[in-house]
Amino acid sequence: MSESGREIEIEVLRYHPERDKEPRYQTYLVPFAHDTSVLQGLQYIKDHLDGTLTFRWSCRMAICGSCGKMVNGEPKLSCHTFLRDYHPGKLRVEPLWHFPIVRDLAVDQSDFLQKLEAIKPYIIRDEEKPVSEGVYRQTPAQLARYQQFSQCINCLLCYAACPQYGLNSDFQGPGIMALLHRYNSDSRDQGKAERMPIVNAEEGVWSCTLVGYCSEVCPKHVDPAAAVNRNKVNSTMDYFLRFLSPRGANS
């Protein structure tokens, strides 16, 4: 890894709850080559310089969503971000913003996971179609309605980018709303009415002020900002038109 002979200073947030009252920073000198990612830099630190450094990672190829970190103040997938782009400056790596820090660069994701469960992220049918009746069919147009929102890898970068989530963690947040929208927009799904109360609540779409940074940092181009704000329109129509529906309010 040191063929090019270049080194970069990586300043990493450290927090070991058994000994630290608050986070501190520690700087390491890391050699890198043209294709060395920030994740590989962290792995070098752990393997050669400081085995106590804790951080999450898995696939190394921007699909598992495990390795999200703040890199110089921007939410990034560390496997997908390269040291060459920061040299000769200094690199600062911190855990994703707006989540409690468990240890070093690992954050507590349980709030997101609870919210994910609550939006019922699966196809809901009034009546299940039996296997004997064959598969569900969709036209390309029907697929296009939800496909981009299905690309979410739950990496939480959008939550790190969202100041409204940081100010109020009751807010559902961009990723959850994108996944909710993915199912509401799927022609196979009949569960929209069950999900609308989450959308219509103050902590649903209405905590969003369209900062828009979430969509800018999404590595899969899901565009959660669009998911949230289109649902502001849906929620508004639901609000004003609910008295016209034969079934009454959606909630």
């Binding site: 709850p17 608050e22 103040g73 921007e74 409690p100 820090i101 900062v211």
Partner: peptide, 25 residues
């Protein structure tokens, strides 16, 4: 979560952390 003694970072001055937030303000 208190059993794990997680650390919650304060939001004070959040808008100064990234020029994108200043543009929003």
């Amino acid at each position: 979560m208190s059993a794990r003694n997680t650390y919650v970072r304060p939001m004070r001055g959040w808008y100064r952390r990234n020029p994108r937030f200043m543009a929003y303000l």
